[in-house]
Nucleic acid binder design. Structure first.
Length: 552
RNA sequence: GGUCAGUUGGUGAAGUGGCUUAACACAUAGCCCUCUCAAGGCUACAUUCACGGGUUCGAACCCCGUACUGAUCACCA
């Protein structure tokens, strides 16, 4: 009984050889320096902020170098698999312009010549490599039960020894081929373990692209490579086989993977694969209610879900800008110095990635969004907000459609100037900013008058203003001069400086007068430029609103 | 317990031995401008880089130790 026999009995269905497999994955025809990266989620149906950031960085690294970005689905754990989970992931990524060059493009379809891109469909491939390992005496079947493993663990804890399946604790590694074969013939369940050639006292070094050199003891654990339940590989084994075959150049993943590097290093070595480069990314954190810093959780934190941003109407481009500022610390300054340049012109740099966990800052996102929206043209804003309204605010959507031109004019207020108005941090804010411009929404009025609240005085001001002074054709300067003239006529201060010095000489100021007009036309004491608003409202609406106020 | 990582203001961070009396941005506060608001302008906001030692003419930056935070030690990824 030889290892050859053992391999045969463990993998009777494997007839292909390694070289058969390797032939199907020819060397990629890419120039030096092109990065091949991948996003490899479990099919859970959605991506959260942390994985979106990682996917974004993977994508960016590939695009920056004219390389390849592919989407591989890691479904070796049925627990994490959700029906139609792949579609959800593809949709979430596509919402941020992250479209794979290769890999899954829908629930069932994929593109690219290095597939299948779903791990459960690659079972035979893993088995070819596992079989070869057994044949070479570098892997073996392990029949230990959960209880056996627990027992060793208890002993190790008691003796204050390192925990795990290694050295003399790796009982099944000493089984002879005959013993193993007999057990298998007996129908005993087993996993396949790596027969680790490592020594804990040896050192290995990872040259991480973001963290530099990290030293570890060599792996000596006989880790499981094929599970007994479904004969699917573990993450470690699948990672080695897939990233070798698919020729990933840089593996980008969360820092929680750093400790398993020794395993991966050994697997690549034992399998004779060239190791990819690694970039271990800092986790995305938040401060929770107790002031404790912790990993952003998709379960507990609404802002961890990409849907959160979608529902608020944060433009995808703005989110990308924010992701880039988290991804690379030098991006923000670059963006400022390049007249708000295009994301594609910025080259991401691994050495500028954060090593410590980044705190996710919603305020900062809003700030970026405000700036972003303020720089759009009114047409762009209209086009971007419309689909969002359709989904989340039907009423306003209908009005925007019905009064397209008028709406764009509303969006134009204080937009085309050196420093445009920044008052929308998301599309959701739009309603609150403009609803009063539409007659259809101008109902249930609640006037927010400030200093002047006397109805008679207000009516007097309105009558005088609109009968005698207001002319829709006036330019802004004339408009304001007339406002001041009226102030003088009514005993209000037309000059704010003078008013502040000598309040007692006046009934109020030009500010009070404009507030009266502003509130009676919009109900709100805070609005954008009043001159623009009156002009847009037009004579007819103004008249109607005066009457509306008087009736009130 | 073993292994590994991280630690610069409220936040993201720049910084890799002298140009740092620590950049820039967000947030916050005050003032100015001003028809409201937003914007804008100005100003304030870490005498100090987790702590303790050491190396050096000189340290946030190099070395050693300690502390704290996090990750990991599954037939989960």
């Amino acid at each position: 009984m030889t290892q050859e026999d053992l391999a045969e009995i463990m993998f009777p269905d494997v007839s292909e050889t390694i070289s058969d497999i390797e032939k199907k994955y020819p060397k990629r025809n890419l120039d030096e320096g092109c990065e091949v990266t991948r996003f490899a989620p479990s099919p859970t149906g959605f991506v959260h902020m942390g994985s979106l950031l990682s996917a974004f960085e993977d994508f960016k690294a590939a695009k920056d170098t004219n390389g390849i970005f592919y989407l591989r689905i890691e479904d070796t754990d049925s627990e994490r698999t959700v029906e139609n989970g792949i579609e959800g992931i593809i949709r979430d990524l596509a919402n941020f312009d992250i479209v794979p060059d290769e890999g899954m493009i829908s629930e069932k379809e994929s593109i690219g010549a290095y597939g299948p891109y779903i791990q459960s469909q690659r079972k035979n491939i893993y088995h070819v490599y596992a079989k070869d390992l057994v044949r070479r005496g570098l892997a073996y079947p392990c029949f230990c039960s959960k209880e056996d493993l627990d027992e060793t663990r208890t002993i190790q804890e008691l003796n204050k020894e390192r925990i795990g399946y290694y050295g003399s604790y790796a009982k099944c590694r000493c089984l002879t081929c005959k013993e193993a074969i007999d057990k298998i013939k007996n129908g005993e369940k087993y996993v396949v373990r790596l027969k680790s050639p490592g020594n804990f006292n040896n050192k290995i070094i990872l040259d991480d692209r973001v963290r530099g050199k990290i030293e570890f003891p060599e792996n000596d654990q006989d880790i499981v490579i094929i599970k007994s339940t479904d004969q699917l590989p573990t993450y470690h084994f699948a990672h080695a086989v897939d990233d070798h075959l698919m020729q990933t150049t840089t593996v980008m993943r969360g820092e929680e993977w750093i400790p398993s590097y020794p395993i991966h290093h050994q697997l690549f070595e034992v399998l004779g694969f060239k190791e990819p480069r690694y970039a271990h990314l800092g986790l995305v954190m938040k401060i929770d209610e107790n002031g404790v810093r912790r990993k952003l959780s998709k379960r507990k934190d609404p802002e961890a879900s990409v849907n959160f941003y979608h529902e608020k109407g944060i433009p995808m481009e703005a989110t990308k800008l924010y992701l880039m500022t988290i991804a690379n610390s030098n991006f923000e300054e670059w963006f400022l110095n390049n007249q708000h340049g295009k994301l594609s012109d910025f080259k991401m740099d691994f050495s500028k990635m954060s090593e410590s966990g980044t705190l996710f800052d919603v305020e900062k996102l809003y700030n970026i969004t405000k700036n972003y929206i303020s720089r759009m043209t009114s047409e762009e804003l209209y086009d971007a907000a419309l689909p969002w309204m359709k989904e989340y605010d039907c009423e306003l959507y209908e009005l925007m459609l019905k009064y397209e031109d008028y709406t764009k004019k509303i969006f134009s207020i204080e937009r085309y100037q050196d420093k445009p108005r920044k008052d929308y941090s998301c599309f959701k804010d739009i309603r609150n900013g403009i609803w009063y411009m539409y007659d259809e929404l101008y109902t249930n009025l609640n006037y927010e008058f400030q200093n002047i609240t006397d109805k008679q005085e207000i009516e007097k001001i309105l009558t005088l203003y609109f009968d005698k002074y207001y002319d829709i054709n006036d330019d802004k300067e004339t408009w304001f001069n007339k406002m001041k003239m009226m102030c003088d006529e009514l005993g209000y201060a037309s000059n704010m400086k003078d008013y502040k010095k000598n309040k007692e000489n006046y009934k109020g100021s030009v500010a009070d007068i404009s507030t009266v007009i502003r509130v009676s036309m919009t109900t709100k004491s805070i609005t954008p430029d009043l001159y623009e608003i009156l002009k847009l409202l037009g004579k007819e609406r103004i008249q109607k609103r005066i009457s509306r106020f008087k009736e009130n």
